[in-house]
């Protein structure tokens, strides 16, 4: 497992902007980053290969939706969706 946390790599002198890396248990996300929304553990209409191909490193899921269906215990048994939220 990777060490997780946040590393600021570079700051912009003229603003508050910075370029950083967010280290998670499953990989590194280059930031500033935009997360596509996949509430039900799917970005509607796209595969995970599509998302990787587009260059996204993290998506947002909705824990409440997944708790209702298919259920967090089931997902835990299957190994988890690797999502934020």
């Amino acid at each position: 497992m990777l060490a997780h946390g946040f590393r600021v790599l570079q700051r912009e002198g003229h603003s508050r902007a910075r370029v950083s890396e967010l280290w998670t248990a499953h990989g590194v996300v280059q930031t500033p980053a935009f997360m596509p929304v996949g509430s039900q553990a799917t970005v509607k209409g796209l595969s995970s290969e599509d998302l990787t191909g587009l260059g996204f490193e993290m998506v947002l899921c909705n824990a409440y939706h997944l708790y209702l269906r298919p259920g967090h215990q089931l997902i835990a048994e299957l190994g988890g969706p690797r999502c934020i939220i």
Binding site: R16, A17, R18, T31, P32, A33, F34, P36, V37, I84
Partner: peptide, 23 residues
């Protein structure tokens, strides 16, 4: 909003806009 957010020190964003607008 993303451009302004980055300038103001934001690192992460999420929004349904690109996907919902697409649909």
């Amino acid at each position: 909003d993303l451009i302004e957010g980055v300038a103001h020190g934001v690192d992460l964003f999420d929004c349904v806009m690109p996907t919902r607008h697409g649909r």
